[in-house]
Amino acid sequence: MPAQIPIDPDRRPGRGAGSNDVGRFERFQREPIADSWDGDESLPVVRTEVREERPRSVITYNRSPDLPFDRSINPYRGCEHGCIYCFARPSHAYLGLSPGLDFETRLVARPGAAEVLASELRRPSYKVAPIAIGTNTDPYQPVERDMEVTRSCLQVLREFRHPVAVVTKGTLIERDIDILSDMARDGLVRVGISVTTLDSVLSRRMEPRVPSPKRRLAVIRRLADAGVPVRIMTSPIVPGLSDTEIEALLRAGRDAGASAASWIMLRLPREVSPLFQRWLAEHYPDRAGRVMARLREMHGGKEYDARWGRRMRGEGVYAEMIANRFALAAKRLGLDKPQPALRCDLFRVPKRAGDQLDLFG
C-alpha cells in the first residue's frame, strides 16, 4: 500500500478519509504545518469549503456498456457525505485536489447549471433520452440545502417534460417531492436510494455524513407513497463487511415500498484503494486481510479491474455466489422485475417570453 501522510482523527471528525495526499497528476506532496505564531502547535479542524463554478456545458455523455444511460448531470464536484468507498474520489485529481479529505471538504457547486441545461435542451440537434442525476457525486449532499442546484435542474426537466433518473443517499430529496410526484404521474422519473448496510455503526464509519440506514428507508417510503417509483440500491456490497446483509437489505427495501433493486460490488479505482485500505486498518484491522483477499480474488489478483463487463461485479466463485444470492432474494421479494421505461415522447421545448408564436399553434 502506498505511503500516506495520516491526519490526526481529532482534525477530521465525521470524515471518511484519513489522509489528504495529492492526486496522481501532482509532482509534489503537500503537508500542513502549524506556523506557531500564536504559540499553538496544533492544526485546525478540517472544515468544508464551497466554491462556485460557472459551467459552459452540463450534460455529460458516455458510451459505457456497463451503464443503462448515455448522459448525466452532476450538480456538484466532490461530496461531503465522505463515503470512503466512493469511486468518484479520483475525479478530484483533475481539479488539482486530493481524492482524500479534499474530496469531502473542498466542494464545487454549479449554480448556473439549470440555465445551461435549458439552453442545451433547446438546441435543434438535441435528441431526448433519459438523463441520470447523481451518478458521480450525490445531488442531495448537505450543500444542496442552500444552493438548490439539483432542484433548479429538476424544475427545468419538468418544464421540458424530460425523463430523468435520480440516485441519492440524501434525505433532502424529500424536499423535491412536489416536482418528482408531478413528473412521476407522466412516467418521467424514477429514483434509486442507496442503502449499503442496516448496521448503523458500520454505516457511520463507512459513510460518515450520510443519513442513517433507517432514515434512508423512510425516504423510500415517502417517495413510494407519493407515487414515485423507487429502487433500493444495495451498493456497494463490501466483501467481509456487508455481504451477509443482502437478503435483509432487500427485505427492508421491499417493506419500505421499493419496487425494484440493484447491486454493485465494491470498486477501488486509482486513489480509492489506498484510502480504503487505510480506513480498513483503522476501523476493522481484523477483517482487512479478508476483505482485500476477496477483492483480489474477483479481479485476477488485482485490487481493481476496470474492464467493461467486470468492473461492476467482478468474476469468479465469490462474485457468482453474490450474484446468485441477490437474484434469488430479489425474485422471492418481487424486486426482480425491471422498472417501466421512462417516457421520451412527452418532450417539448417550452416557449420563452419573446419567442415567435407558432402560426398554427
Score class of each variant (00 low, 15 high):
Gly14Ile: 08
Gly18Arg: 11
Arg30Ile: 14
Arg30Val: 14
Glu31Gly: 09
Pro32Met: 09
Asp38Lys: 13
Asp38Gly: 15
Gly39Thr: 04
Glu49Phe: 12
His81Glu: 07
Tyr85Trp: 10
His92Tyr: 05
Leu95Asp: 15
Glu104His: 07
Thr105Val: 10
Leu107Phe: 07
Glu115Tyr: 09
Glu120Asp: 07
Ser125Phe: 00
Ile131Cys: 01
Pro142Met: 06
Val149Ser: 03
Ser152Ala: 15
Gln155Asp: 11
Arg175Val: 00
Asp178Met: 07
Ser181Lys: 11
Val189Trp: 03
Ile193Leu: 02
Arg204Asp: 13
Leu217Val: 10
Val219Lys: 01
Met233Trp: 00
Ile237Leu: 11
Pro239Arg: 08
Asp243Val: 05
Thr244Ala: 14
Ile246Gln: 06
Glu247Gly: 05
Arg254Ile: 02
Ala260His: 05
Ile264Pro: 00
Leu266Gln: 09
Arg267Ser: 12
Gln277Met: 15
Glu282Trp: 09
Tyr284Cys: 08
Gly289Thr: 02
Ala293Met: 11
Arg294Val: 13
Gly309Arg: 10
Arg311Val: 10
Arg311Gln: 14
Met312Tyr: 14
Ile322Thr: 05
Asn324Met: 12
Arg325Ile: 09
Lys331Phe: 02
Leu335Trp: 01
Gln339Pro: 01
Pro340Ile: 00
Leu342Tyr: 03
Cys344Pro: 00
